[in-house]
């Protein structure tokens, strides 16, 4: 296919500095210590209980973060999308969006001050507080968007036909916000699984996750082969996951 000169700079730059690196990464992941082709790097991740433990541990943290932020964000998104109006809604939205502009690093330090103030120290609880704090706005936005899309008359209809508040939530609001729930959960799950800063700064001895492992393997341990294999697995897994969910949510939103 002929690619015109107009998009050429973009295509070349991304090919060179985004896609080529992943080819190198893939190549590296099959390199043995002596430069020979090997599968050992991948096998090491499964065989070595330390690696496996870190991977499973990261998944547990990500799932917990997803569930907690979903439960916390859902009622608030209903309030902001459907009850708040005018000035109040704009201010609430602005307040929910502003944290996006403050880097996770700075917010982790802010969480640290709170942790110390309430007498806690770095550890699992501190890390989970930091994770929830970081990912709450990310969970909020897609749910808020789908909540806003429910038409006023759909809710009126449910009421008129006899739905009490519980029926309304269970039979109308939750099913109709399902695309937002799926999108928000997916985003948070994928992003939190490789979170590096929060576990490192707040997790203390409990803060060794996939992100930390990648950092360690490359920058401290020098185990590039295993590091590359781990990074490849994470990347491929997340791409496949994202693809499947994008297709599923596509189906759901095809109303």
């Amino acid at each position: 296919m002929k690619i015109s000169t107009i998009i050429l700079p973009l295509v070349i730059f991304l090919a060179l500095f985004f896609y080529a690196p992943f080819i190198i990464l893939g190549y590296q992941s099959f390199q043995g210590l002596g430069g020979e082709f090997t599968l050992d790097n991948y096998l090491a991740l499964v065989r070595d209980p330390t690696y496996l433990h870190v991977i499973l541990y990261s998944i547990v943290i990500a799932v917990e973060t997803t569930v907690i932020t979903l439960l916390l964000a859902y009622p608030a998104s209903y309030y902001v999308a459907r009850i708040a109006s005018g000035q109040e809604k704009i201010i609430l939205l602005a307040l929910l969006l502003t944290p996006f502009w403050i880097d996770v690093l700075l917010r982790s330090i802010a969480i640290k001050t709170i942790i110390y103030t309430i007498g806690l120290r770095e550890g699992y609880t501190a890390m989970m507080i930091g994770m929830v704090y970081e990912y709450l706005p990310i969970m909020f936005l897609p749910i808020y968007a789908s909540m806003s899309r429910i038409s006023r008359s759909a809710i009126d209809a449910a009421r008129v036909f006899g739905a009490n508040t519980w029926d309304l939530i269970r039979r109308v609001i939750v099913p109709m916000t399902l695309p937002g729930i799926v999108a928000g959960s997916l985003l948070v799950l994928l992003m939190s699984m490789t979170e590096f800063v929060i576990p490192s700064l707040l997790g203390g001895t409990q803060g060794f996750t996939i992100g930390s492992l990648i950092y360690y393997l490359f920058l401290s341990g020098g185990l590039w082969g295993v590091g590359a294999a781990l990074t490849m697995i994470v990347t491929v897994m997340l791409m496949v996951f994202a693809f499947i969910i994008a297709k599923r949510t596509g189906d759901i939103t095809a109303w």
Binding site: L14, F17, F18, A20, P21, F22, I24, L25, Q28, L190, M191, M193, T194, F196, G211, I214, Y215, F218, W224, G227, A228, T231, V234, T235, L238, M239, A242
Partner: peptide
């Protein structure tokens, strides 16, 4: 699309390697 959804740490590592 991929630069937006791939976790930053993996693309950072890959670029470093290159």
């Amino acid at each position: 699309y991929p630069p937006v959804i791939i976790p930053e740490i993996t693309e950072a590592v890959a670029l470093m390697l290159l």
